[in-house]
Design a protein around this nucleic acid. Structure first.
Lengths: 284, 284
DNA sequence: GTTCCGCATGAATCGATAG
DNA sequence: ACTATCGATTCATGCGGAA
């Protein structure tokens, strides 16, 4: 049985133990609302399991992004969590090359979010500091896509308190000039506000790796993007599901999920984690 | 006189009113310790003064980076503050292309720092959040370069101390493998410290523009890199000096500076600002 | 002297309108 | 169709005056 493909279908979750390219090719066009994934990072050690050499990374990944493009809905979004490794004292360029090549496939590089990892451990190297950030690249098929900005609003700074008390003359002037007849609407925009829209810099602490499996990203990271880019009932895909954090989070938010993982140990771990958030019984 | 090249030499400052390519070509090889600059960002408007169209940006910049490579000392560093604009709802790719092309010129892309702008420009759009970060790209000629890490250490938060103290054996082992060279054994060294090395994420608010002159970036930004990559007496070059913030900061730190600015108004502003930090009289 | 509060000001981006 | 201009939107910061 070891290493053989398998699958689990339970409730809103489809889990596959297989190479993601194989499963992706069997999926329908325009069927996925959000792809959120953290692919295996490039690795210089050629023989490492799952490690792809930096020089071959783009070549390896492009057939996958091609399939992701096909299965994603026109209004869907592809979020790619990635960071280039240091090779011989220099940042590798495979992420840059990947973005350029993906645009040739038709992807639009809409935005680059920064995940600022606040609590990384101290460390020291002679010619570089600790790496405290990763990229979340946002790709889309169209200029217009689904985005629920209100779902991820953050508490507003202190200045809001005084602002709520009395709008400044300057604000009134700006509102008057904009509306003219019926400015009440604009004032309402401000009066009840205690939250602001976020920026493209995300401050999330890395979660401690406690449960034996290596620390993936914090649950808040996929959660933020799931809320932002999907509605309830939408379909979320993670082609490199690992321990299934993205799937767990998406299921908790009442989204449907498809998870693919090629490593058998991770697959079983993922199935176990997913089972903990699904009401239905999962047959393994 | 308007638009004519000119220059000011006073004390440790050389200021040139000219196209930077022209001045750079007259400079000696291997003479500069640090280049810190924020070139004009790409601009879609074709006829705007100083604006370079995104499609022509790389082509325009490469001859300049070629000269910077020549005049930089082998142990020197080139810090480039840049951020791609949104064009037609999509991030432009000229920064990515620039990095790839500069590597062909011989540059090593050592690191990418993130400048997190806490107070970024406000606004709301249907498909995008506010842009709150810029890149500080670090380029070098060699694998080994001058870096004074101790100059930029930051106070260690209490969380760090308590966290280090609580490290389990398992955590120490993991840190050893990730950090390398038996870090876990030296935990005691860290516990005694009250300062930590920074990360590659810089948190700085843009300085407010209230009193007439507004700086594009906060003084702390060039100050951080000047302290990190140069010693006293070293030579700092800014080929797009603008209002001269980088030069001012470097002079205050007792570095020598060369500033080049093509715009006459900015040149005079720069000369004025530089004069305020130099003991010697500046003749204009 | 502190603290509080009003205020202008941004390395922005989108959509509509006009040439 | 393609490009230039304009108005609307939004919020953290430091200064200066008021309490």
């Amino acid at each position: 049985m070891s290493g053989q493909p398998g699958y689990v279908i339970a409730g809103d979750a489809q889990l596959y133990l297989d190479d993601c390219l194989h499963i992706l090719r069997s999926m329908d066009d325009d069927s996925v609302d959000l792809v959120f994934t953290s692919p295996p990072y490039a690795d210089q050690r050629k023989s490492t399991y799952g490690g792809i050499h930096p020089d071959e990374y783009v070549e390896w990944f492009l057939p996958i992004t091609e399939q992701l493009f096909r299965v994603l809905k026109p209004t869907g979004t592809f979020c790619l969590n990635i960071k280039e490794k240091v090779v011989n004292g220099e940042r590798s360029t495979y992420v840059l090359e990947l973005i350029l090549e993906m645009r040739r496939q038709g992807w639009r590089w809409t935005e680059e979010f920064i995940w600022h990892k606040k609590n990384c451990y101290p460390g020291k190297w002679p010619n570089r500091f600790r790496d405290a950030w990763e990229r979340i690249l946002q790709f889309n098929k169209q200029k217009k896509f689904k985005m629920n900005q209100e779902e991820v609003m953050v508490p507003m700074g202190d200045w809001a308190k005084s602002r709520l008390r009395k709008l400044s003359d300057n604000d009134r002037r700006r509102m008057d000039s904009s509306v003219g007849s019926g400015f009440g609407k604009n004032i309402a925009n401000w009066l009840e506000r205690d939250k602001a829209y976020p920026t493209n810099v995300l401050h999330l602490a890395t979660e401690c790796a406690n449960k034996g499996h290596s620390a993936a990203f914090p649950r808040d990271l996929p959660d933020w993007f799931v809320r932002l880019f999907t509605d309830e009932g939408d379909l979320v895909l993670d082609p490199f599901a690992g321990s299934g954090t993205t799937l767990e989070v998406a299921l908790s938010r009442n989204r449907r999920v498809i998870g693919i993982e090629i490593n058998e140990d991770y697959f079983h771990l993922m199935a176990q984690n997913v089972r903990s958030v699904t009401a239905e019984t999962v047959l393994l």
